[in-house]
Design a protein around this nucleic acid. Structure first.
Lengths: 359, 359
DNA sequence: TGCAAATATGTAAGCGCTTACAAACATTAT
DNA sequence: ATAATGTTTGTAAGCGCTTACATATTTGCA
């Protein structure tokens, strides 16, 4: 069963192509044989082209082309201890804002020669931990996580294996972990101040689910604290947490709208929820912004185009993806990088907010 | 430098834990040593638990737990020739409808113990080919591709390596390739017939970019052929292809709307474009559907909530993701599966379509 | 021209697992 | 008791690469 024809001193490998059993994929050995060099040289041509003479390099490259040789990733990863693969765990891919980030992340990684191994946690920290282990097992070189609130054990898995990681979508100067993002709390706080500055006192909030989601917590707390700073609370205790869907936004406000003392402004944890609230108001003939102010969070493309256009906080989602890729690749190539990057969010005032009517 | 303490016949491995240099990650050897069994047994416990006695199995599992052992994916893949990884190349992640599909795909794969390696082509066939090679090199066990129009060479890479693949988002009974999806052409054809049935003759279309995108081609051709079947053409030649964005939808119709003979209905290649068209009409005070009918394609959540609600074709995007995972895993485990699955799309008639005004 | 230093290539030892095969042991039939 | 059979475990040969080290070749300089 063993092949015998490996004496490398025969003239011209050209007519002596290795008789591979059938059409099995070619190995580095086959390339070496065809180009009449050692496997080490082939490997060098592929990994550090300039350490090989041009003549040889060309011969090898020609052989690679002729055989349609594709290196075996697992073997490569095993021998070199690097997989050129980056893992990412997002709460859900099915969210415009994460999708954008992922798109840019993936594109940038691809440009650096890295591949993206993707998992989702469905906003569940246990699942996140499990997926993290799976990705680590697959041999990722670096990891991208959303937010920073998670069990210490998850971080430990990464630290133990010396896998660099970064928390995105959040910026926390006091955190021991590297991060790229913005200040959810601060942005929400500012948003609430704006609402109060233009005269609102009766403010309600439809938040995203807070559990296991520190971004949502930051937004909720930011609004709440801003209100408290002026001795206000959520009007009538109108504060609800809902999943990311238009439908949920709509349903949630129904009760509030028929209350004897409805809020004059509703802050939402994200644009999708806000859109739901907006659509519900519209279909109930409640004038926005005259009778009701609405704010979103995220700044998805759509928010600029609905009528009235949604006041929201725009987030640099594409940039987060790109920078996360930059950070990890820099770390992996031992270049220095800032371990924390603060990106700015912007309050975008559009047409769903105005001073409340004076009764 | 070599460790010597490997004689496995010493009493009780319990107090003789392998002195790993520092905190290097434990290897299967370490587990075997701790549990006082061979590495083969450890491997069996991990891969075919029932081929090992309960006593031994428990001892091994205990050792695994104590050491926090995580198998090395690359080594595993190299030795077993399976990576438990599935590749997917989508045009862009940043599109609600693909994101949904990916979310379900990923969730299902994860349930089967597989991981998703993700790449995007940006609707560029060459890039797709390159990404395909990269993924194959990483050692994916199966591949998911969107649409079926691509160079033969791309398919060959997969076939040569015996990697099962499936084209999603499309259904073509005559194709030599397995697929899961629906009939873009037929659905579009039906949509145009509906428009004509309710009286429209002046029909225009804002299509997605057709190049390198057979789904878009199918939709465009479906509309065009339906018109032709009743001796119609795009009114005034009003047919434009535009990128996937609300802004593009808006801009595109501007010219048509100020034309002396505007269309009475505009069919769009996807919901996002349709939304753009709708928003533009609304901001120009053109009544929808009285003065203008608009149709979308995809059935994103939003289309049901805008006012007026968008008439569109709903697509089973989640199902496509789930079924694609099912198919590939079945193939990899040598179970039989249908190689082509036709899913149905549905014309959802809502409030943006009505008979044209009679002049 | 000769010798040291620099550069180019080859040799072969792993990387951490899986698995064919061999060996050991347990079970049943003879 | 012995042989035949089935089951459990161990041994060790790879899987396809990379890379430290050894070797061969070239270059620079006295």
């Amino acid at each position: 069963m063993d092949k015998e024809n490996h004496s490398s001193d025969m003239e011209s490998g050209d007519c002596n192509r290795l008789q591979n059993d059938d059409n099995a994929a070619p190995r580095i050995k086959d390339v070496a044989f065809l180009a009449d060099v050692s496997t080490a040289t082939v490997s060098r041509v592929l990994n550090q082209p300039h350490s090989v003479t041009e003549t040889l390099r060309n011969r090898v490259l020609k052989a690679v082309g002729e055989l349609d040789y594709v290196p075996h990733g697992a073997a490569r990863a095993l021998a070199s201890r690097r997989s050129r693969t980056i893992g990412a765990i997002v709460p859900t891919i099915d969210n415009a804002i994460f999708a954008t980030s992922l798109q840019y992340l993936q594109a940038r990684l691809s440009g650096f020669g890295y591949t993206l191994l993707l998992a989702s946690s469905d906003y569940n920290l246990e699942r996140e931990h499990k997926e993290c282990q799976t990705l680590v097992e697959k041999g990722i070189d670096g990891m991208i996580l959303v937010g920073e609130a998670r069990g210490q054990q998850t971080y430990e898995v990464l630290v133990k294996k010396h896998i660099p990681y970064i928390n995105i979508w959040i910026y926390n100067p006091d955190s021991p972990h590297p991060c790229i993002g913005f200040d959810n709390y601060g942005a929400a706080y500012q948003l609430a101040e704006y609402l109060m500055d233009i005269g609102h006192r009766k403010i309600a909030m439809v938040a995203g689910i807070n559990e296991g989601n520190d971004r949502a917590v930051g937004r909720s707390t930011g609004i709440r604290d801003a209100l408290a700073s002026r001795n206000l609370k959520f009007h009538n205790g109108f504060y609800e947490e809902r999943p990311y869907s238009i439908e949920d936004g709509r349903n949630t406000v129904s009760a509030w709208l028929s209350h004897s003392s409805p809020p004059t402004a509703i802050a939402c944890g994200n644009d999708i929820l806000a859109l739901g609230v907006l659509f519900e108001c519209i279909s109930r003939k409640i004038r926005v912004p005259e009778d009701m102010s609405i704010t979103g969070f995220d700044g998805i493309e759509l928010s600029a185009h609905v009528t009235p256009a949604l006041t929201t906080v725009s987030i640099p989602s594409a940039q987060i993806g790109t920078l996360a890729a930059n950070y990890l690749v820099a770390r992996l190539e031992d270049k220095t990088t800032a371990s924390k990057t603060r990106l700015s969010s912007h309050l975008v005032i559009r047409d769903t907010t105005a001073p409340p009517r004076i009764d």
